[in-house]
Design a protein around this nucleic acid. Structure first.
Lengths: 216, 216
DNA sequence: CGAGGGATAGTATAATTGTACTATTTTTGT
DNA sequence: ACAAAAATAGTACAATTATACTATCCCTCG
C-alpha cells in the first residue's frame, strides 16, 4: 500500500497543528505539511505535489473555493478534502462541481478523516452521509439547481468589497459615501450578490459571508 | 510541580480529538477529558473537578458564555480558558467580567496554549496580546462600556429562539406566524436583542449569532 | 471589431426594518 | 405575596431594504 503525502491548509494555527499531529499518527501517512492559507498551500504544492490536500473552506488571503479551483486546474492528480463548519447545500454542490473529492464537517471523528483520506487516495471520492444527504435533497427538492438564474457564487472584487462593508453593519448610503459611489450603485451590487449567492435578504448575505470566509 | 487535569469542551469532534492528543503531549498535563458541549462538560466536572477547563465559545446546547458562568459560580477553583475564532471586544470584556482566566484565539500556536494552561493554573490569569489590546482599546475608546444601556448579552430562551429564526432569513411576520405571536411582539424581541448585544441592525444580529454560537 | 461582463447610476414602488414609546399578562425569585 | 423580569401586543413614523426595471461606460477576449 502506497504511503501518502498529505498537506493541510487552515488559518487556525491551533487546529492546524493539532491536525498535523493527528495526521502523523495515521499509519499510511508518511509526510505531513501545513499552510496558513491557500496561497501558502499552493506554494507547498509547487515544490512537491502531495497525494491529498485538506483545505479549510474559511481562510483569509485565499479561501477554500479559490484554492480548490486552482489545485483542480493545475494539479488534477491531487485529491482534495474540504473541511467546513457549515453544511450548506449551496457550497457542497458548487464544490462538487469544481471537482473536490470529499467533504468533512469539522465535527467528524478522526476515524472518519482517516477513512476519507484513504478513500480519496484510492478510489477518487469519499461518499459520506453529509454528501449523500445533500445529493438526496438536491434530487428531491431541486431548489438550488432549479433556480433559473443560479450561478455558482463567484463574486467580483468589488462585490466582495461591498459584501465586506455590509458585514460591518453599514447601510448602502454609508458604503456609497465610503467608496465614493452612488447609493444606487451599491444597492445594485447588493442585489447582484444576493442573486449570485441565492439568498433572499441581508441576513443571507451575512451568513454567506461567514461561510465563504469573506468575514473571519 | 503539580500535574494538571484539563478538560476541553468543543462541538467540533475533529478539533476536539486533535486537541486532546495535543494536550496529552504536554509535560505537566496528567489527565485530559473532553466534552461535546457545555452540559457534558459540567457533568464531567461534577464527577471530578479539573484544574483547567478549555471552553469553546461557540457550542450548541450550552454555549461558552453560559458554561463559563456556571463553572465560575459552582466551581470557582476551576481555571477557565476560552477558545474563540473571533476577537470581538464585546465578548472579551464581558467574559472577563464573568471571571474567566484566559482568552485564546483558535489561531494561537500550541506553545502559547501550553503556556496559557500553566499560567492560569499557577498565576490565575494569562495575559496575552489579544487581551492586552482589548483592554487598551477599552481604555482609549470607551465605546462599549460607555454605551448607556450596555448590558452583557444574556439572551432569554425566547430571544435566542427568535434570533435563531431571524438567522434563517425569516422576516418578523414569518417568525410571528411560525411561533403564533404577533409580528409586533417579535419586533419588540428583535429590538431588545439588538439593544442587549449592542448592534445597530440585523447584520449585527447575525454576526452576534455566529459569534455567540446561536447559529452553528 | 463586436459581444459580454463588470461597474456605474438612475426611477419607481412595495415590503421590511428601525426608533420610540405605552401597556397588560405571565413567570420567576426571594 | 410582592417585586422584578420576561413575554405579550399595540401605535406611529422614519429609514432602509427588496424588487424590477433601463441605461451608459469601460474593458477584455476571441
Amino acid at each position: 500500500m502506497k504511503k501518502l503525502k498529505v498537506y493541510i491548509a487552515d488559518d487556525h494555527t491551533l487546529f492546524r497543528k493539532a491536525m498535523v499531529n493527528l495526521l502523523r499518527s495515521f499509519d499510511r501517512i508518511s509526510d505531513v505539511k501545513d499552510a496558513e492559507n491557500g496561497k501558502e498551500l499552493l506554494t507547498l504544492i509547487k515544490n512537491e505535489v502531495p497525494d491529498v490536500a485538506i483545505v479549510d473552506l474559511q481562510m483569509p488571503i485565499m479561501d477554500g473555493t479559490e484554492t480548490s479551483t486552482q489545485i483542480v486546474q493545475k494539479y488534477p492528480e491531487v485529491k482534495i478534502i474540504i473541511l467546513t463548519m457549515h453544511d450548506s447545500n449551496k457550497f457542497i454542490l458548487h464544490m462538487m462541481d469544481l471537482g473536490v473529492h470529499a467533504f468533512l464537517l469539522k465535527n467528524t471523528e478522526p476515524d472518519e478523516l482517516e477513512r476519507a483520506i484513504y478513500a480519496v487516495a484510492d478510489k477518487d471520492f469519499y461518499h459520506n452521509d453529509l454528501v449523500a444527504s445533500v445529493l438526496r435533497k438536491n434530487v428531491t427538492e431541486r431548489k438550488i439547481a432549479q433556480r433559473p438564474n443560479f450561478k455558482p457564487a463567484e463574486l467580483t472584487e468589488r462585490e466582495k468589497e461591498i459584501l465586506f462593508l455590509i458585514c460591518q453593519e453599514l447601510t448602502m448610503k454609508e458604503i456609497g459615501q465610503r467608496l465614493f459611489l452612488s447609493e444606487n450603485t451599491v444597492r445594485n451590487h447588493r442585489v447582484n450578490i444576493m442573486e449570485k449567492v441565492g439568498v433572499r435578504n441581508i441576513v443571507g448575505l451575512v451568513k454567506y459571508a461567514y461561510e465563504a470566509g469573506v468575514v473571519i
